[in-house]
């Protein structure tokens, strides 16, 4: 077992607001796992707890990584153990070039160029550009994924990897993820509210209103997700339309 998230409850910053309750799921080595659920269901919060962000340390439960209890380890310690996260909305760094950002972990320019290629960015064009708000959302997102991949992580968490990427990029994403998987051999946790994005996953966990309500094979979970969303199978083929999941919960 690579990762075991055991019964965690998150109350950010000691507020009395519980944003996830008793979340349990696990991942094996080299597994691609999708954490699926509608917006606001608590997916990012789970990723933050696994990464070790202070505000999201579990109020209850345990996180075990490669047999070690890391529930209260620092972000840096976890990163050094091979856990990393490509953020849903990456921050901009004023005055730091993409090369400098990548070279926190990449050994040199050549290695940085290699990871940029994996996310389909031309190193000649990008390495010396600033990692600030002169980059578009999609470009920044690609750089973020590249920086996470450069770590050669054991567990790579990609939070909404398609958010901010343009339409043409959608088809590109699954082949990009496949290449990343091949190159790094990492276990990947794909966090998404879209079926297409989770497409390369073997397994999935379905989050609903702060809880993981089902884990299993990706296809099965996807079926369940769509049924919950619409009460019919149609959205297995078409993207799920935006509807109020909460309102439907009772009827499931």
């Amino acid at each position: 077992m690579l990762l075991n998230v055991d019964n965690i409850t998150i109350m950010p910053d000691d507020s009395d607001k519980t944003i996830t309750k008793n979340v349990t799921f696990s991942m094996e080595e080299e597994e691609v796992h999708a954490l699926i659920g509608p917006n606001g269901s608590g997916k990012s919060s789970i990723a933050y707890a696994i990464m070790g962000l202070k505000a999201y340390l579990p109020a209850q439960g345990k996180i075990i990584f490669k047999g070690k209890d890391i529930t209260y380890a620092s972000i840096t310690e976890r990163a050094k153990m091979g856990i990393t996260l490509a953020w849903q909305e990456p921050v901009r760094f004023e005055g730091i070039t993409i090369a400098e950002y990548l070279e926190i972990v990449a050994k040199n320019r050549e290695e940085s160029a290699k990871v940029l290629k994996l996310v389909n960015l031309d190193a000649n064009k990008y390495l010396d550009r600033k990692c600030d708000n002169t980059l578009s959302g999609g470009e920044r997102k690609r750089v973020e994924i590249a920086a996470a991949v450069a770590m050669n992580p054991k567990l790579l968490m990609l939070d909404e990897p398609d958010a901010g990427l343009d339409i043409i990029a959608y088809g590109e994403l699954s082949s990009m993820l496949k290449k990343i998987k091949e190159e790094t051999g990492a276990s990947i946790l794909i966090i998404t509210h879209r079926e297409e994005t989770g497409g390369i996953a073997d397994y999935a966990s379905l989050m609903w209103d702060g809880q993981v309500i089902a884990s299993g094979e990706f296809k099965e979970i996807m079926e369940r997700y769509c049924l919950m969303a619409r009460g019919e199978k149609k959205c297995m083929i078409e993207p799920c339309p935006k509807i109020s999941f909460k309102a439907r919960k009772q009827s499931v």
Binding site: M51, T76, V91, V105, A147, M151
Partner: peptide, 8 residues
Amino acid sequence: DTLMARGL
């Protein structure tokens, strides 16, 4: 948090 998640 972002930079620490890269091991700094």
